[in-house]
């Protein structure tokens, strides 16, 4: 029997707003399959997003969802997790949302290692506002606010997350779909802050201005650019140029998780006070 996506899709919300060729639908379905694989109870799941095309995803998902302010998904998610530490919290963001206006919140959530899964849907551009450059727009690429080619250096999102203290960091793409399912399952199951950068294509505001003929062209670029970490590590240094690793890039088991650390501190304080009384 075919997989029933409707069990996780909110009635009456489709069709979605994404343009033809946008790869966010691929990520949406991968997320649904992953949630199904771990038998995630929808009532115990909160999905929080900020602003941008990616941040519309939770609107279609039948769970407890919050569509919040630009860049602030992780702060709302932190509030939810601290208020309901027993619930599963997924924060979902785009490259501009997570690493430009929300960059500060991103690194501090990583630093706390709070048990939230952060999905950063990186399409290299501000799509919703019409194609302005983001902190991940490749150098030299055209954007509506970089008409002479982008001069801004980029963030490498996994490296940023590792540096900031996240205990699980992975990268997937909208092309390598079975691998993405696996990564998402592992990320959601991980205790602590897990970051998954998911490479996406925006043919409307990025691809067609940057010599990609169509969306397929962008997916083929993903196929050629990204390779499993093990294979990437075996390449001689001179052959890694223009290639990026895929999969789980960093994982630290048993790193102190923020909600648990807080609960332990709180229990200790109460114990002390009771001892005095």
């Amino acid at each position: 029997m075919a997989f029933d996506y409707n069990q996780y899709i909110r009635g009456g919300k489709l069709p979605h707003i994404w343009c033809p060729g946008c790869t966010y639908g691929i990520v949406f379905k991968s997320l649904i399959r992953s949630l199904d694989a771990i038998k995630q109870d929808k009532d115990d799941l909160a999905v929080v997003s900020g602003i941008g095309c990616a941040s519309r995803l939770p609107g279609y998902l039948d769970a407890n969802t919050l569509h919040t302010a630009h860049g602030r998904a992780l702060t709302f998610a932190t509030g939810v997790k601290m208020a309901a530490p027993g619930k599963r919290v997924i924060a979902l963001s785009g490259d501009g949302d997570a690493t430009a206006i929300g960059g500060n919140h991103f690194i501090h959530a990583c630093r706390r290692n709070i048990d939230i899964t952060v999905l950063v849907l990186n399409n290299y551009i501000y799509g919703m506002t019409g194609g302005q450059h983001s902190p991940t727009t490749p150098k030299g690429h055209n954007a509506t606010t970089m008409p002479y080619g982008n001069i801004d250096p980029n963030f490498d999102i996994p490296k940023l997350a590792i540096g900031a203290g996240a205990s699980f960091v992975a990268r997937g793409t909208a092309y390598h779909v079975p691998a993405l399912d696996k990564i998402l399952i592992e990320a959601i199951n991980h205790k602590g802050l897990s970051v998954v950068e998911i490479i996406n294509a925006c043919p409307t505001t990025h691809g067609r201005r940057n010599k990609f003929k169509n969306a397929t062209d962008q997916l083929l670029w993903m196929k050629d650019t990204f390779m499993p970490l093990a294979a990437f590590d075996k390449l001689p240094a001179e052959k890694t140029e223009g290639k990026l690793p895929l999969g789980v890039l960093y994982k630290k088991e048993n790193a102190p998780e923020y909600c648990e650390t807080y609960a332990a501190m709180s229990a200790g304080v109460r114990q002390k006070l009771e001892g005095r009384a």
Binding site: Y126, T129, G130, Q132, T144, T145
Partner: peptide, 13 residues
């Protein structure tokens, strides 16, 4: 970037 003023930064860029 923010709608509906994106023409301004785009022009200025």
């Amino acid at each position: 970037p923010i709608t509906p003023q994106n023409d301004i930064p785009e022009y200025m860029s």
